[in-house]
Design a protein around this nucleic acid. Structure first.
Lengths: 193, 193
DNA sequence: GAACGTACCGGAGGCCCTTCCGTTTAGCAA
DNA sequence: TTGCTAAACGGAAGGGCCTCCGGTACGTTC
């Protein structure tokens, strides 16, 4: 159970330099291409990056993996926010506020959406998935400690419920609908008096 | 509101006979192919039916449309069940029982799953979507009348929440997980005392 | 039963996803 | 410098999705 930060034991060799630059070029190209059209093809991104498709796939096995990497920072912000809220606000309020933020981020860009999607598809490495679950767990635990939220809820179940947000068809009523659904989810998590 | 069976006013022309038989052949081929492998390609189904891909697409614009047609009867059963339960059982119990049934059907075959998916994707004609919403509405209304379920919940929102069930990765724990999530959803729909 | 308009057919074509493997090259060691 | 080797590259290949349009044949009308 020791969890101290220790030097990794110098793995056989480091990443080759061309691999690093290619990876960066793909990310840059993806950033541009996705800004122009949210559903740009991976083929076109590879071409734009001046790289073979194989190379793109080697670095990012799935479309989600690529997007998740792109929105890495925003995802981290959402995760951090959960811990902040859990620590500084009444649990129920914290949960509500965080849900709203998740919905907002997800609708705006869609890095968070992809994490959730990738997560529910089971195909995500722990680098983002774990912390995201941790964020939810922190909110749930705070509420459980206070007695307003059910104890023992599985964060993964909540994550799955949140994934519904990205399936709301876009349009005028979308925000309202998201709010309604979040209310339902929230009430489902609360302790019944 | 008259609902009498009346002669349709002879629309310009009837469907051509070859169209009807082709449609039937596609359905038959799809039934076989999907029994063998749940993700048989539309191309292969068309080939199996001895029909061009174009023909398949003309009759069933999307994969969901095809599957929904195949499981037409099972879907109808689920819809009927909702009305039965709403009429004969205490609302909360009815809701729970129906949710379980939906989960079961969805995991078994997956006609219902496709309806829900198609519905949330907005691409479904009213023939199945409307009744399905009506079924949910009946259950919600019964509960609202009794005072155990929130009044004014949008059936579409509930449908969307149910769609989560089909994203549970299959495996040993899947059934338990579905049950847990259905409990959360149910509690979200109940009136808070 | 012949002729015609149109509903319907079929599959080629364009695009995309994903894998696989022969070729290239970075980085280390002599 | 020169070799060497494994890491990384690139793109061809195989398969699927969906659209589009020239051709076919059903059903009707005379």
């Amino acid at each position: 159970m020791t969890d101290l930060p220790q030097q990794p034991p110098t793995p056989p060799r480091a990443t080759r330099s061309d691999a690093r630059t290619n990876r960066a070029r793909v990310l840059a190209a993806a950033s541009e291409a996705l800004a122009e059209s949210a559903n740009a093809s991976l083929t076109s991104i590879a071409k734009r990056a001046g790289v073979g498709v194989g190379t793109l796939y080697r670095h990012f096995p799935t479309r989600e993996a690529l997007i998740v990497e792109l929105y890495h920072q925003e995802i981290q912000k959402v995760i951090d926010l959960a811990h902040d809220l859990a620590a500084t606000r009444p649990p129920l309020e914290a949960l509500r506020a965080w849900f709203q933020e998740v919905a907002r981020y997800g609708q705006l860009k869609y890095g968070v959406a992809e994490v959730i999607h990738a997560a529910t598809n089971g195909g995500l490495d722990d680098e983002h998935y774990g912390p995201f679950l941790g964020a939810i767990g922190a909110l749930l635990d705070a509420g459980a400690a206070e007695g307003t939220l059910k104890a023992g809820t599985d964060p993964e179940d909540v994550l799955l419920q949140l994934s519904v947000l990205w399936r709301i068809p876009p349009g005028p009523g979308a925000a309202d609908r998201a709010a309604r659904i979040l209310d339902l989810v929230t009430d489902g998590l609360r302790v019944r008096t």
